[in-house]
């Protein structure tokens, strides 16, 4: 059952999440135990009841001073204090281990939360080695990755539960988080600070892959878009430059704006619209024509292209491998 919960955090796939998960299980176990013990005590206490009924039955039972019973409080509080102290120490140890980014990070990402998508910038010492993509983060497996988090508009929260807990992206400040994946795979992430109409549809994916695969992917992402050869795609490019270029960038073309996600290697991504739709030709057409019907309030306007324009645009976008 847990296996089918892409956002569940009772499974961990990275060292940071693992450290937290152990403490989570401990506190959860203590919590369940406490509830069971109290429930049993309460049940036993009530079933000693003298009477059932209403006011008359209550009045009929005489009042007695009863034993002072202060031991209950002394013993109860003393026993409670033990797991509290253990939790406190364990919390501090885990906090020290998981909070600050470790010094040995080998990759730095700048992730910016937008209403309602994620901008992902791969930082590098040389400008020609850095690039920008969206909603899909690739990282090499077993490598600690530093993530610098910023908010473009309102507060969002960056969360990839299988790898790490949440860190907010807050406008006006840069928060630091770090990720590490111990196993290759696709890990779902989600915005978890309420950010407006489409807060529900602000997912991201982290793809952890072997260092070789990661290098291959990175080299490909650094390339500008290829010039299309087919006439339909060429026409599509014109439309993209003329219309989509107002908000989007396709490196190597005249479309060079940064309002919306970078589309240079759109087809290398698994999903579109921040995890809402699969990246297929059909979904792309639907999204371009009727984004507001699919994701009301999103910054992506309905395009009202002619059928020919739309199919050409999609033909072009499909070349953006």
């Amino acid at each position: 059952m847990i296996g089918s919960t892409p956002l569940g955090y009772l499974q961990a796939a990275g060292e940071r999440a693992h450290a937290i998960l152990a403490l989570t299980w401990f506190t959860l176990a203590v919590s369940i135990l406490v509830c069971v013990v109290i429930a049993v005590l309460l049940w036993r206490a009530v079933t000693r009841a003298r009477a059932h009924g209403g006011a008359a039955e209550t009045r009929a039972v005489p009042v007695e001073r009863g034993p002072k019973a202060l031991r209950w409080i002394g013993v109860g509080v003393s026993i409670s204090a033990v797991p509290l102290i253990i939790t406190l120490i364990w919390t501090m140890v885990t906090l020290a281990a998981t909070s600050g980014p470790p010094p040995d990070t080998h990759l730095t990402l700048d992730v910016t939360g937008h209403q309602w998508w994620w901008e992902v910038h791969y930082d590098a010492a040389q400008p020609d080695q850095s690039f920008t993509t969206a909603n899909e983060i690739h990282i090499p497996v077993n490598t600690r990755v530093l993530v610098r988090l910023r908010g473009a508009d309102v507060i969002h929260s960056f969360w990839v539960p299988k790898l790490a807990g949440k860190t907010d992206t807050i406008p006006g400040q840069t928060n630091l988080a770090w990720l590490q994946a111990s196993a290759a795979g696709r890990y779902l992430g989600q915005c978890t600070e309420y950010c407006g109409w489409q807060h529900a549809h602000m997912a991201l994916e982290v793809v952890a892959e072997s260092p070789q695969d990661f290098q291959r992917w990175r080299a490909q992402q650094l390339q500008p878009a290829q010039t299309p050869t087919a006439p339909t795609a060429q026409h599509g490019l014109q439309v993209v430059e003329f219309r989509c270029g107002l908000c989007h960038q396709v490196r190597g073309t005249l479309a060079a704006s940064h309002v919306g996600p970078d589309l240079t290697h759109l087809m290398s991504r698994h999903m579109i619209a921040s995890g809402m739709l699969p990246n297929t030709a059909g979904a792309l057409s639907g999204w371009i024509e009727a984004a507001q019907g699919i994701k009301p309030g999103s910054q992506m306007p309905d395009q009202n292209l002619s059928a020919e324009e739309l199919s050409d645009v999609v033909a072009y976008l499909e070349t953006l491998q």
């Binding site: 036993r44 206490a45 009530v46 000693r48 009841a49 209403g54 006011a55 039972v61 019973a69 209950w72």
Partner: peptide
């Protein structure tokens, strides 16, 4: 409750 004589209302 334990050391009282509860009446269940």
């Amino acid at each position: 409750i334990w050391h009282g004589r509860p009446v269940v209302t």
